[in-house]
């Protein structure tokens, strides 16, 4: 079942086109990596998906709701982990979760239950009163992921969530997010690191604002490593652009 649909979306900064006729359709319970080098347009796409930007060209539907026509319903079905941390470092872990729950309109027993479940998932129930500043980078990221799930979204967007983390934390977070798809959650994960992608994952290759490929990682590689396939795709485009 298609739960996430981006159709013919374009976006420009003045005369410079950042996204050009982008179309992506994704089903529930999948892990989709949005792969692209820096400047490919990943963050622009994320800003459009989270309604920080809007465009008149194309449409975006999340869990059946058009983001332009029903922004509140569409946003309610969306969990987001931004590239930049968005935690209040001097507030406690529990308070950060409570604040987010309140911004989602959750309160009382329902919020309490969801926060307790989030802390349990993080194995951080004992550290709930600690300030976020005291957590390491990996724990902070996991906390942001758990926080993005408090309102039980159907789609989870993550914009390069492992940037700046050590290899151990990166693996733990990547594994954790892959596991989330088992419950039917669609994960849309922007990255430029191919080692975070598994063979059965969907891969969307974005380059210079255009979708170059959208298929399963194992099909994209065709025997080669994903790294090589990605390089071949994007460098081919660069050579093509230079020749043109």
């Amino acid at each position: 079942m298609t739960i996430f649909s981006v159709r013919n979306v374009s976006y420009s900064y003045g005369t410079k086109k950042a996204l050009d006729d982008v179309t992506i359709e994704l089903d529930a319970g999948r892990f989709c990596a949005l792969l692209g080098p820096n400047g490919a347009g990943k963050s622009t796409l994320f800003n459009l998906l989270t309604r920080l930007f809007v465009t008149r060209e194309g449409s975006i539907r999340i869990a059946g709701h058009d983001l332009a026509r029903e922004p509140r319903k569409a946003l309610a079905a969306l969990g987001v982990v931004f590239q930049q941390p968005t935690l209040d470092l001097d507030m406690s872990v529990a308070w950060n979760l409570q604040y987010f729950a309140a911004l989602q309109g959750l309160s009382g027993a329902q919020a309490k239950k969801r926060i307790e479940a989030a802390l349990e998932r993080l194995s951080m129930s004992e550290r709930a009163r600690e300030k976020v500043r005291e957590l390491n980078g990996g724990h902070r990221r996991r906390m942001e992921i758990a926080r993005a799930l408090i309102h039980e979204p159907k789609v989870l967007l993550l914009d390069e969530p492992t940037v700046g983390l050590d290899i151990e934390s990166r693996i733990a977070i990547t594994d954790h997010v892959h596991d989330l798809t088992e419950a039917g959650l669609l994960v849309f994960w922007a990255t430029h690191l191919v080692d975070e992608i598994r063979p059965a994952d969907d891969v969307v290759v974005l380059h210079k604002g255009r979708i170059l490929k959208h298929e399963r990682a194992e099909n994209l590689c065709a025997g080669a490593s994903l790294q090589d396939a990605f390089k071949a795709l994007t460098s081919g485009q660069i050579a093509e652009a230079e020749a043109g």
């Binding site: 309604r51 920080l52 935690l87 911004l103």
Partner: peptide, 18 residues
Amino acid sequence: EMGSMRLLLTSPLPRGWL
């Protein structure tokens, strides 16, 4: 600049109210 404003702006509650 630090990003925490994004939490507010991506909430499903009306932006004007927030």
